[in-house]
């Protein structure tokens, strides 16, 4: 019997195989969204827990990876909203990121700080798309599938996110 059919039947070994195959992908997807490695592990675990509980509803003809990402994305969005951050991460977390080892002028450093603030202030919907498309370089199709929207909607949100970032930077006195 095919692996996905065995999983649908509730076989734990089939679930373990799928878990081992997809856990890294789901983790990277989630951490790209919420930018918090510890929370991303918890959410990855929770996503697979929900996947296991919903095994009977899974259609083996569908792509398991896309389904897993979709569930994980919903959890990540829920996490961000619950945390009341309305942002991908707190300023402290963003500031904790290692800086690139290139010579950095004071102006460029200031621009980056402003951009981090502008990014942190984006609405969740736009920030998700900005994080996945602009930062993580995911494809429009993958992002659309995970968010349950069309490719056109992803492009539209990306455009709005970029426009909003430029507007916020302009308000901070920075022209790109």
């Amino acid at each position: 019997m095919e692996l996905l059919e065995r999983f649908t039947g509730g076989e734990i070994e089939a679930f373990e195989t799928l878990f081992q195959r997809h856990q890294a992908d789901v983790y990277h997807w989630v951490v790209g969204l919420i930018r918090d490695p510890a929370a991303a592990e918890d959410l990855t675990l929770e996503a697979f827990w929900r996947i296991y509980r919903a095994h009977a509803r899974f259609d083996p003809a569908r792509c398991f990876g896309a389904w897993a990402r979709r569930i994980a994305t919903n959890l990540a969005l829920e996490h961000l909203r619950k945390a009341g951050r309305e942002v991908m991460a707190g300023e402290d977390l963003l500031n904790a990121q290692p800086s690139p080892p290139v010579p950095d002028s004071a102006v460029l450093s200031d621009t980056r700080a402003c951009l981090r603030r502008a990014f942190a202030g984006l609405p969740v919907k736009l920030k998700c798309v900005a994080a996945l498309v602009l930062l993580e370089q995911q494809t429009y199709a993958d992002v659309a599938c995970a968010l349950g929207i069309t490719v056109e909607a992803v492009k539209s949100r990306e455009f709005r996110a970029v426009r909003l970032l430029r507007k916020k930077l302009k308000e901070m006195g920075i022209e790109l």
């Binding site: 990277h28 690139p100 900005a130 930062l135 993580e136």
Partner: peptide
């Protein structure tokens, strides 16, 4: 500029 300010995590 965004990638240098907020480095990608899912690498």
């Amino acid at each position: 500029l965004l990638q240098s300010a907020v480095p990608p995590m899912g690498d």
